[in-house]
């Protein structure tokens, strides 16, 4: 299980990096954390002629606050940095709260958020969180930047809106409004495994404590993470009660088209999707799931 031969470039600047990927877009691949990509190489599921390593690109990592209070996470930011960042915990506690479910510490020390989103594994957590938060993806190429909303970024299993000459340089999470609570629940075979199925939710409560907005994502249940708009609208209309949380689960089950795989049948995913959504919504009852993560 050894990787195939390739030419290797380690650009120091983003400018250099986008030029290289533009030049090698037919047979080149970007390497960031490599925690999914290197196994692909070692198993010889891919044999790119050229690899462009982003790890030495200046300024491609790190999280910062945007002027509007949103969170900017650069593509090369390691999972572990997000997990431990007080800034992230303040600006997006859902992201912080989800990180312990992402693989294991050695993987989080190396793996990057941009890499995970670009890889677009349907069972991965990062794409689901970005979708739940209505994050924007900044894609950079020699012709400049374009911004793609999360809802349009994920297009299929391991397939995204990224063109062959583009780099995912930044993910922008909108500001976290007052009164927002979060929930996250996933069913994995073992802690740290990819989810069989999971759900991330955000509920914005108004000052009267009513549900003003809800965002519900189910992942692992189809080719891409999915927002369940019908359930979101239902919660806004009817409010959050034990019955409506169950109903949100039922709506989710009906909305998805899961597949069988080694770890679970489509039926299992359909059933457990409802449970994940309901449990994630139930978590929003806890004041610990407000602004700052517990």
């Amino acid at each position: 299980m050894k990787p195939p031969p390739f030419a290797y470039f380690a650009p120091r600047s983003l400018d250099e990096a986008v030029k290289l990927i533009d030049e090698h877009q037919d047979d080149g691949k970007l390497l960031s954390g490599g925690q999914s990509f290197v196994p692909v190489l070692s198993l010889r599921l891919a044999s790119p002629a050229t690899i462009i390593d982003l790890n030495r690109v200046e300024g491609l990592g790190g999280a910062s606050e945007m002027p509007d209070g949103g969170l900017r996470v650069r593509g090369l930011t390691r999972h572990r940095e997000i997990e431990l960042s007080p800034l992230v915990a303040r600006l997006n506690p859902l992201l912080t709260g989800t990180m312990p479910h992402v693989a294991h510490v050695q993987i989080r020390n190396r793996g990057t958020t941009g890499g995970s989103c670009s890889h677009a594994d349907p069972a991965a957590e990062m794409p689901a969180i970005a979708l739940t938060c209505d994050a924007d993806f900044v894609l950079t190429s020699v012709t400049g930047e374009r911004v793609v909303p999360a809802g349009e970024f994920f297009q299929g299993v391991f397939t995204t809106a990224l063109e062959a000459n583009e780099i995912l340089t930044e993910i922008r999470y909108p500001a976290w409004p007052k009164g927002r609570r979060w929930g996250f629940e996933e069913m994995a075979r073992r802690r740290g495994d990819f989810a069989i199925v999971g759900s991330a939710v955000l509920v914005d409560f108004d000052e009267a404590g009513r549900c003003g907005a809800a965002k519900i994502t189910i992942f692992g249940a189809g080719d891409i993470p999915l927002r369940i708009a019908e359930a979101e609208e239902m919660l806004v209309a009817k409010g959050l009660t034990p019955e409506t949380m169950r109903e949100a689960g039922r709506i989710t089950s009906a909305a998805i088209e899961p597949r069988d795989d080694l770890h679970a049948s489509a039926d299992y995913r359909r059933d457990v999707s409802a449970v994940m959504v309901r449990r994630a919504l139930e978590q929003t009852a806890s004041p610990l799931r407000t602004g700052v993560a517990a």
């Binding site: 069913m187 075979r189 069989i196 169950r246 689960g249 770890h263 679970a264 049948s265 039926d267 299992y268 059933d271 457990v272 409802a274 449970v275 309901r278």
Partner: peptide, 20 residues
Amino acid sequence: LNPNNVLRMIRQATPRQAAE
């Protein structure tokens, strides 16, 4: 006794009872 098999056994034993 993986989750898929256990849940299937529960479903087959109690086919009409929702597990909620």
